[in-house]
Nucleic acid binder design. Structure first.
Lengths: 387, 387
DNA sequence: GTGAAAGCGCTAACAG
DNA sequence: CTGTTAGCGCTTTCAC
């Protein structure tokens, strides 16, 4: 008992052209949500099969492995798909094939340009290989990760991207149990869970300290945001300063995570007494993010502190503001896009490569040999006016 | 199933990379939990049922309607779940129940604070009602929306959030066919597809023009980013100026979307000849985003143009930079969080309310009566130093 | 309060 | 190249 009420037409078939004809288009223009009930549910693969005069399996092949279908059948089936407005049900397909064609990505925030960039590139590469990306925002709270991972595993992602390399035991247990490829980004650790694409945050701090020292600074200050990796960068900086036996100012109370301009301003204001007294030595300031750095610079100039004459500032992240504000300020750049790309490539390699008919396989990035568990992405200090 | 090991990691970072060891990092995973049974595959509901000595259906009830299970059974089943590390398979559950417990949200970008905020609140409310949010980033390109919507409908979301109110016919057809609740945010239109939560962008521009006029400005300039709604705001502004018979400067070539600080700087630099000549009248500038406004202000001051003495600037969005930079600048604020909340509430109402055991039903926001198809969210001009 | 049977819509694994 | 037969793991529906 099949009676098709009002067919929906005119969807764009993947890889196909527009289908001009639309048999019996919707009669009543309005009623946005009524379409489904009347005819007896949504159109499914058997409806298409029937309309095209083939078996359901053939329709499935048209959708998934079109090169295994004769051209004539292909055309007939595609016509039927377009005519009926068939949208495949990946829930059913996923249950059957045990592949969800979905990759979950857990990030602390999407507000930071670096993560936004990374995500964009990660998604683009995966989409090209016919995977959808499900984005999960974990925030910076401890303990928020495990429930989030648990809830997403419920959808049986084919792979997982995690931010950071330290996870609660509960999270590790979940990942373990899931048995899917996992890539950790944005950090590297001696004990990767599976694959990693990132860099050593303490090294960044040490490098900035070295950079300042090379310019003869004797007095240093670190302003790290309240998240783990920001603290690592700050600690790398401070450790290097201490190791050199140079003066390290004590920062004010802990800053928030994620960082803000305002937090940078307030922190600098709190430090002012120790930076601006008569005869004070030049101080070299390392902020764990460009937002903090911009805030610090803003406040310093308002207080009449010369930048970089009395206070040199280096940020982190190479956000647009670091190069587009006046003065542009020095910062550390990490190629977020590359991290996204490399993470996607690592996952795809494990998933068996692209599964769509893409002309271009996943190129191995930047001469780095993927296949190992761990890729370190370089960072660079960008010298601008403030140091 | 899962194989680890083998491989070479580590590229060198400029900061002074060490890292040579890797050894048996992935060895002895410590078996945090007996998640995977020795037998084969992942643990499923029948395994839990068997372990607890009940029928699979009972386990399902424990998970979905625990109040319909006796306390004793509940405890026994929950123990079994924990012991086996069972993670329910929502793909199977979704196929069976025809509910995916997933809501898809299509936004042009996650990089703008306003969208990030809106998304956060939207997700939080939905998660509390036991729905996961799948975020799709459409960008600002025409024609990108339909394929994206098509691909996500494949997963049978229970509802959809769309940004903007104008969609290609292909998109509308898809939404129509899906037969699910749809909420359009961030804009209102005379012909909503289903529900809307937003505001009239042209009205914003008109309000800013009125605000400037009230201060006696006679000369106006609008700098809109290249996306549709930014142009609407600009057009609302320009139309109001023209209607009052006042002078409206011609803006330079079209700006990009999404907007950037750099674009604001460049646009203002291009306008300089018409703003800074001797005896020039004060000009009132409306930027379609705070990033543009910040760039314009930066460039104006660099050029020695007094802000607000010679150039008054009003942005849009109330981004942190508008209040935390020096000087803080005037802008228009829209409560992105409220949009997210209201959108979530509208959808949840249609989905039958929270389905989790939440103590708090969806509160109707801010005295606005939901249930109509259209909610207008207020906006406000925030007066700061630059006007 | 609990269980048994019958699919949900699709695809793997085989035929032909 | 195309079709047939069985499920995928869960929930619906109805008994008990």
């Amino acid at each position: 008992m099949k009676k098709r009420g009002g067919g929906q037409g005119g969807t764009t078939a993947p890889g196909g052209g527009q289908d001009a004809r639309r048999g019996n288009a919707a009669k009543m223009p309005a009623r946005p949500c009524a379409a489904r009930r009347a005819g007896g549910g949504t159109v499914k693969i058997t409806d298409v099969a029937e309309a095209a005069g083939v078996a359901p399996m053939t329709v499935s092949r048209v959708l998934n492995t079109p090169d295994r279908v004769s051209t004539a059948t292909l055309a007939r089936v595609r016509d039927a798909i377009a005519a009926l407005g068939y949208v495949p049900n990946l829930i059913a397909g996923g249950l059957s094939s045990r592949r969800s064609r979905m990759v979950a990505a857990v990030v602390p925030t999407i507000a930071h340009p670096m993560f936004a960039d990374m995500i964009r590139h990660f998604s683009t590469l995966l989409r090209a290989a016919n995977y959808q990306v499900m984005l999960l925002i974990s925030g910076y709270e401890e303990g928020a990760e495990a429930p989030l991972v648990q809830s997403v595993l419920t959808r049986r992602p084919d792979a997982l991207l995690m931010t950071g390399a330290d996870h609660a035991p509960a999270t590790r247990a979940l990942l373990q149990g899931a048995g899917i490829p996992v890539v950790e980004i944005w950090d590297v650790s001696p004990r990767p869970f599976d694959m990693q694409v990132g860099f050593d945050h303490a090294e960044v701090g040490a490098a900035v300290a070295a950079y300042f020292r090379a310019q003869g600074f004797q007095r240093f200050l670190s302003l790290p945001a309240g998240d783990r990796r920001a603290r690592q960068r700050g600690e790398g900086f401070s450790a290097a300063v201490r190791a050199a036996g140079l003066e390290l100012l004590e920062p004010p109370a802990e800053l928030p995570a994620p960082s803000t301009i305002t937090a940078g301003r307030e922190a600098l204001r709190a430090m002012l007494p120790r930076l601006a007294f008569p005869g004070a030595a030049r101080t070299a300031l390392f902020c764990s993010s460009d937002l903090l750095a911009f805030g610090a610079i803003t406040e310093a100039r308002l207080a009449g502190l010369g930048v970089p004459a009395q206070l040199a500032v280096c940020g982190f992240g190479d956000f647009e503001i670091s190069r587009a504000s006046a003065p542009p300020f020095s910062t550390v750049t990490v190629d977020g896009a590359a991290i996204g790309r490399l993470a996607a490539e690592a996952l795809l390699a494990r998933l068996g490569g692209t599964d769509a008919a893409e002309g271009q396989g996943p190129a191995i990035g930047q001469g780095v040999a993927m296949g190992g568990p761990r890729v370190k992405v370089p960072f660079h200090i960008i010298h601008r006016g403030t140091t």
